[in-house]
Computed example of a mutant assay.
Amino acid sequence: MAIVPLVFVLMRLYVRVYMKRIFGWDDLIIIVATACLVAYAAVCHVASTIGLGRHVTVVAENPNNLIDVAMLCDIGEALAIMACTLGKTSFAVTLLRIVVRRWMIIVLWFVIVTMNLVNVLAALFIFVQCKDPRHLWNSAIPSKCWPPDVFTNFCLFVGAYSGAQDFVLALLPWTIVWNLQMKKKEIGIAFAMSLGVFAGAASIVKTTFLVALSKKADFTWELVPLLYWAAVEDGLAITAAALSTLKPLLARVFPGSTINNNYNMISYPSAPKRKVFDNSQGETRTEIGHGSVHETESQTKILESQSPNRDETINMTTEVLVTYNRTS
């Protein structure tokens, strides 16, 4: 769940930087999210080598290992939270470059702000729930702490809210393309942009394991399912955000497929090539070059149908030169 998203993000960066020659905030955010996910995997791996995944009675045979596992779990939880929220934020920022309706923009900004707010608070609360944070992984250090249920209940709320935002971000692309003039095979764009629904499903499963946060008696064993599903949610969220931008790469790998005919909701159409047509009698010669017409049935319609202002539409320019050669 760390390597697969990393591969997809690298392919996304290849498309964005090498093929498209562009780099936006959503690209930077997804890089940071992937770095957090890889760091989370590394922390969990180190913790597993010294006792994570075993019962606490076994790990306690070396008290230092027990302290280190507890500290690494807290660090890993914070990294997992940030990887999750940044991966979803990257996808939301990508959608902001596509949508033009005001209510969609408001919804996306609401999702971005509230999702980051609650998740950043959750990451901070891991370390501030005790006056002396060292008490969290070393109970021998005295400190005054919150009641255990306070942090657990807040994490349950964050998990449920995060899962709800996954479904919002997954369904929003359908509101963009639902009423557009599209071929059935081109509905695949909406499916590709809606893969975050699987991250939402993983978030629901992860939330059911959040009660383990309050179980300190055997935390080295009880936390494992939660850590697993946190990685699954993070990996799916980042993969979904990266996959939605890979159409140009797939079109290059499969040049003869129907991928090239799909709508591209971000890039502008290129200028048509110059063509010459002759009739069979040799009496009429039609030369097509450049000119200016408004295209109403092409893929530019995907943006026009969403725009309340016609100045925001895209026009395709074509020049037509017709030459008649009359023979006697």
Score class of each variant (00 low, 15 high):
Ile189Phe: 14
Ser214Ile: 00
Val224Asn: 06
Gly235Cys: 12
Ile126Thr: 01
Gly235Val: 12
Gln165His: 11
Lys215His: 14
Leu136Thr: 11
Phe127Glu: 03
Lys131Leu: 05
Ala231Tyr: 03
Leu243Trp: 01
Leu169Trp: 10
Val118Phe: 01
Pro142Ala: 08
Ala201Ser: 10
Ala123Ser: 09
Asp132Gly: 00
Tyr161Pro: 09
Thr175Pro: 08
Glu233Phe: 02
Tyr161Trp: 13
Leu171Cys: 13
Thr220Phe: 01
His135Ala: 14
Ala241Ile: 10
Trp178Gly: 03
Thr245Cys: 09
Tyr161Gly: 11
Glu186Thr: 01
Phe151Val: 08
Asp234Leu: 02
Thr152Tyr: 02
Ile126Ala: 01
Ala202Gly: 15
Ala202Gln: 08
Ile126Ser: 00
Leu180Met: 14
Thr245Glu: 10
Tyr228Pro: 04
Ala123Asp: 06
Trp174Tyr: 15
Ala241Ser: 13
Trp178Asn: 12
Leu227Gln: 04
Val158Phe: 11
Ala237Leu: 07
Val224Gly: 04
Phe198Tyr: 15
Val128Tyr: 09
Val232Gln: 09
Glu186Asn: 12
Ile187Val: 11
Asn179Arg: 13
Ala230Met: 14
Asp149Thr: 15
Ile204Ala: 11
Pro225Cys: 03
Ala199Tyr: 02
Thr245Asn: 14
Val211Ile: 07
Glu186His: 02
Thr245Lys: 09
Pro147Gln: 08
Val118Arg: 14
Val128Gln: 10
Ala170Ile: 07
Leu124Ser: 03
Asp149Pro: 12
Phe151Asn: 03
Phe157Ile: 00
Leu180Lys: 13
Ala231Lys: 06
